[in-house]
Amino acid sequence: MPGLLINIDVPDLAAGERFYTSALGLTAARRFDDDIVELTGCEAPIYLIVKPAGSAIGPDGGDFRRYNRHWTPVHPDFSVADLDDAIARAIAAGAKQEGETLALPYGRQAMFADPFGNGFCLIEFNERGYDALLS
């Protein structure tokens, strides 16, 4: 089975590290040169990678990085024990909550944008979790 790691592009490594350690309680672990920091504290490591706004997203182009709010079909969801506390921490660190906190069959969820335009969710699962969606 393959391993999993998560890469998040940011225009400013220090600001990205401050946000993700403050908002989610992650810990800065290893550093790679001046443009990558590894964050731990989740099931998978998260790597913040400095990529300037306007740089190509890959060798074949197709789009350019932008750090205003943008949409992507892949985003991290962080499961938390206390959603209200996690929302307060995320907002205090600079996240912008998008919409109301949702009550769902599997628990409660709040959607956010980080200060760099990347989307993420916070989820407080109830005792059934995603099993609540099974018939």
Rank of each mutant, 00 (worst) to 15 (best):
A29F: 02
R30D: 14
R31M: 01
F32Y: 15
D33L: 07
E38H: 11
E38W: 05
E38D: 09
L39Q: 12
L39Y: 08
T40D: 06
G41D: 06
G41T: 03
E43I: 00
E43V: 01
A44N: 13
P45L: 00
P45F: 02
I46M: 10
Y47T: 12
Y47V: 04
I49H: 12
P52L: 00
P52N: 15
A53P: 09
G54K: 12
S55E: 13
S55V: 00
A56K: 13
I57R: 13
G58H: 10
P59D: 13
D60P: 03
G61C: 05
G61W: 03
G62L: 01
G62P: 05
D63E: 11
R65K: 09
R66Q: 08
R66G: 10
Y67N: 04
Y67Q: 04
N68F: 04
N68K: 09
R69K: 13
R69I: 00
H70V: 00
H70R: 15
H70L: 00
H70P: 00
H70A: 06
P73M: 08
V74Y: 08
H75G: 04
H75P: 02
D77V: 02
D77W: 01
F78H: 13
S79Y: 10
V80Y: 07
A81F: 02
A81N: 12
D82K: 08
D82E: 13
D85L: 09
A86R: 09
I87A: 09
A88Y: 07
A90E: 06
A93S: 12
G94H: 06
A95H: 08
K96I: 06
Q97I: 02
E98C: 06
G99I: 01
G99V: 02
E100Q: 14
E100D: 15
E100G: 11
L102Y: 08
A103G: 07
L104A: 04
P105N: 10
Y106F: 15
Y106G: 06
